[in-house]
């Protein structure tokens, strides 16, 4: 089984997001990079499937040179090889990202044969457009389901579960297929020490990419109003319990 997982590295912002002066970027000075929880589960799923079915799992990202760290992290968990679509330009929109990924997949498949599965996270943790997987599926003319909660492979068919407002939907898709994974589908492993050492020797292919002129014009970010509140400190340590009970009574949660 040949699997490609596409991930997106984002600044690990912690509790508060600081914007650049023009509002067009996150001020990521002193911030590490991370990926979305959904994508961690996509990586885990690929590792488990390749272990069970044989084959190879490739991890791809589009981003700045530092994104190599996110690829190495996935390789340390057990992915086999990486692809970095390198750009120093920020704020690519969903269409631009999908075009660059589609072009790369087409080239990779011409050289090495088709991927049976292409996995994404259901939405990125930053912009959260929730579209790139579908755009790539459409461009490659493959079936797709976005935001899946369960996946089993039976021969040439992907048995899929997805939770919607109405209940759990069951799908059967012919492979090759493009799926976007939701957090909670599995428990992602942490990279082991041995895995981290081995990851340094695993191959990463670097490809330079440029955004085309499609998609939505991004203007800027703005903070949402509720970002500046300050809690009333009731006290320190167990002595504050009586004040907590007063709050519970005030909110009519206790009589």
């Amino acid at each position: 089984m040949n699997i490609l997982v596409c991930i997106k590295q984002i600044p690990d912002v912690g509790g508060k997001i600081k914007l650049s002066e023009d509002g067009r970027d996150i001020d990521s000075t002193n911030l590490g990079l991370t990926i979305s929880p959904h994508e961690e589960c996509a990586v885990e799923q690929a590792i488990q499937l390749v272990k069970a079915e044989g084959g190879s799992a490739t991890v791809l990202t589009l981003g700045i040179a530092d994104s190599e760290n996110q690829l190495r992290d996935s390789l340390a968990r057990g992915m086999n090889k990486g692809v970095l679509l390198h750009t120093e330009i920020s704020n690519w929109n969903a269409n631009q990202i999908a075009h660059a990924i589609t072009d790369t997949i087409k080239k990779m498949e011409t050289d090495n044969g088709s991927f049976d599965l292409i996995l994404f996270g259901s939405e990125s943790a930053d912009r959260g457009n929730a579209q790139v997987g579908i755009l790539v599926a459409h461009a490659l003319d493959r079936p797709s389901v976005n935001g899946i909660n369960g996946l089993e492979i039976a021969g040439n068919i992907a048995l899929i579960k997805r939770d919607s407002d109405e209940g759990t939907e069951n799908y059967e898709l012919d492979l090759p297929a493009v799926l976007s994974v939701k957090d909670g589908m599995n428990l992602p492993r942490f990279p082991s020490l041995k895995g981290t050492v081995m990851a340094k020797k695993k191959p990463i292919q670097f490809i330079e990419v440029q955004p085309d002129d499609t998609g939505i014009g991004f203007l800027k970010f703005e903070p949402t109003p509720e970002q500046s509140k300050q809690a009333v400190i009731l006290g320190t340590g167990p002595e504050a319990a009586a004040d907590v009970v007063q709050v519970l009574k005030k909110l009519e949660l206790l009589r």
Partner: peptide, 13 residues
């Protein structure tokens, strides 16, 4: 709504 509702994102269509 962007960044899980922590930021607004302004776009032009």
């Amino acid at each position: 709504s962007s960044w899980g509702g922590s930021l607004f994102e302004k776009v032009l269509i």
